[in-house]
Amino acid sequence: MEYKLVAVDMDGTLLTPQLEISEETVETINRVIEKSVIFTLSTGRMYLAAIPFANMLNLDVPIITCNGALTKCSRTGKVYDIKKIDKKLSSKVIKYCEEAGISVSIYMEDDIYIQKNSENLDIHMQIDLAKPQIVVDFDSLLDGSIIKIMFNSSDKYKLEQHTRKLYELYKEQLNFYFSLPHFVEIVHKEANKRNALENLARKFNIKREEIIAMGDNFNDKDMIEYAGLGVAMGNAPDYLKEVAEFVTHSNDEDGVRHVLEKFILNR
């Protein structure tokens, strides 16, 4: 099979545990792009947190961010697809989190907003590589422009308890994703990596069987099942490995590079 599109998750997949891309992987990706294969990112990260890595790879393609809620060109900034959360839903979710004492972060297209004394400040600085805007309250942001709501708690039981309640309330209207050890991300019901990847393939007139998708976590499952070649990382949980067509090395062992060399560069 001649693959024409490769979509790769970032954290736990393309990035090492040190949040880096190995030089060998960068070189391999460059060789893949030279063969006119479209290589893109498909991440739960916000756009601005993905751009430094897209620039490192010299990508000039639409990249999938915020778990499929925003697809935007890495070079020009052109928006190809954006799915915003209804402002009434946003208000209800935020109010619930505030009353439960859970730290909330609000994602617009290129900005993150938190309230004063939020536990999330350092996390955004380290992971999103962005300094959040600090606001007194979220009322002024409830204008229908929110694309992701993230909340967290270091208390695992508390996090699971409130996530379960929110899920039961809004599972028909919103998608819920766990990310990292203590985070829950909420996006539009139609926002997921599979839909975003399918839209991208349609734009470039690429068939499903001509796509490789790689990931390591639950939010990657739908795109791995959709792609012609769905790949789970060696560090992925068993349920993801079971639905994948191929299991590669871990993210600490250049698993992405291994797949590109085996299925595209024929090494």
Rank of each mutant, 00 (worst) to 15 (best):
L70Q: 02
M56D: 08
L70A: 04
I51F: 06
N67G: 13
S90A: 07
L57Q: 10
L89N: 07
C66L: 14
I51C: 06
N55K: 15
S90R: 00
S90V: 03
I63A: 13
V79T: 09
T71D: 11
A69Y: 06
G44C: 02
A69P: 07
P62H: 10
V79S: 04
R75I: 01
S90C: 07
K83P: 02
L57K: 06
S74N: 01
Y47W: 04
S42V: 04
L41M: 13
G77N: 00
L70G: 03
V61H: 13
P62A: 11
I85F: 01
K87M: 05
G68W: 03
I85E: 03
T43G: 00
V61T: 15
K72A: 00
S42T: 11
A54L: 15
F53S: 08
A54Y: 12
S42R: 04
N58K: 14
K83F: 05
A50G: 05
K72V: 02
S91K: 14
L41T: 12
C66E: 14
I63D: 05
K78G: 00
C66Y: 11
C73K: 11
I51V: 14
S90I: 00
Y80F: 14
S90P: 00
N58L: 12
L89V: 04
P62E: 09
K78M: 00
A49F: 09
M46S: 14
G68E: 07
R75Q: 12
R75F: 07
K88N: 15
N55W: 11
K72D: 00
I63H: 09
L57C: 09
M46N: 06
S74W: 00
V61D: 07
C66W: 05
T40H: 15
K87S: 09
C73T: 08
T43E: 00
S91Y: 06
S91H: 06
Y80M: 10
S90G: 01
P52Q: 13
T76N: 09
L48S: 08
A50P: 04
A50T: 07
N55V: 05
D60Q: 15
T65P: 01
I85Y: 01
S42L: 05
K83Q: 12
I51S: 04
R45E: 15
I64W: 05
V79I: 14
T76Y: 04
S74I: 03
K84E: 10
D81K: 12
M46C: 13
P62R: 12
L57V: 13
N58D: 14
T71V: 15
D81Y: 05
A69D: 09
S91G: 01
R45L: 15
R75C: 07
S90W: 00
S91L: 08
G44F: 01
A50V: 04
